[in-house]
């Protein structure tokens, strides 16, 4: 599904954000990406969502080399990837419905079909009753779940999350993670970047750990032995 092949990324000025990173995420697999801030988690996600291009190496999704994707085609690639942001990036002056419907509107859905899908997505994150609210009136956890609904509304095969629990308390964090698990169980590949190591350890999923741009761990993470 997702493959990094000896990927390095250095920024102008010589800062190396990723250093020969290789890993593979299978179809229907869920994994965590951890590391201190500045370890390269964000850069890795940016390479997948084509916000940045690797300096060296190849990023492949479903055997398609992303370096072959030209600029006009980037939007179509992004429609196949659901992205969840740390600050959820909702459109604050639009209702929850409009926010979740945005990817569908972009793809040309309309009418009943769109309403059905939006309601299904909001139902999955448990916010069906807030459909007409503005995001400001929701709590942080609810806003994050609206972001998740938006990311999954067009049923992408790959889900990326960047610090989805960054601003949430432990209980809410656990809820959010349960939502990701639920999507994973219906066959979606999920990659969650987080520095909440306690949560990662409890969830018992494959964990990729970055340190100063290098992949230093790939496998289950034990809560007690912090590799960082």
């Amino acid at each position: 599904m997702l493959e990094f092949d000896q990927v390095s990324k250095s920024y102008p000025g010589g800062f190396v954000a990723l250093d020969r990173v290789s890993f593979k995420l299978e179809k229907g697999e869920m994994a965590f990406l951890t590391g201190h801030s500045g370890a390269g988690k964000s850069t890795l996600l940016k390479l997948i969502s084509l916000i940045e291009r690797p300096s060296v190496g190849r990023v492949l999704i479903n055997e398609v080399d992303l370096s072959r994707i030209r600029r006009p085609h980037i939007p179509y690639v992004r429609r196949d990837i659901g992205i969840i942001f740390q600050n959820h990036r909702l459109l604050m002056n639009h209702t929850v419905f409009d926010n979740v419907a945005l990817p569908l509107v972009i793809e040309g859905f309309s009418g009943k079909d769109m309403v059905k899908r939006v309601h299904a997505a909001l139902d999955k994150v448990g916010l069906l009753d807030k459909v007409r609210c503005l995001p400001q009136t929701l709590s942080g956890g609810e806003q994050q779940r609206v972001g998740i609904a938006r990311a999954v509304v067009n049923k992408p095969p790959l889900l990326l999350a960047d610090e989805p629990t960054g601003n949430l308390d432990p209980d809410l964090s656990k809820d959010i993670m349960r939502v990701f698990e639920a999507f994973n169980q219906v066959g979606v590949s999920v990659l969650v970047a987080t520095h909440d190591l306690g949560l990662v350890a409890r969830m018992k999923y494959r964990t990729l750990t970055l340190k100063q741009g290098k992949m230093i761990n790939d496998g289950l993470l034990q809560y007690q032995e912090d590799p960082l």
Partner: peptide, 27 residues
């Protein structure tokens, strides 16, 4: 249109069975 997943069913309204006339009206 899906570049990465050629067989992806849910990529856009065009993949759905919407008649040409209706799509014209919707446009």
């Amino acid at each position: 249109m899906s570049i990465l997943f050629s067989g992806r069913a849910s990529s856009g309204a065009s993949a759905h069975k919407i008649s040409l006339g209706r799509r014209f009206v919707m446009f």
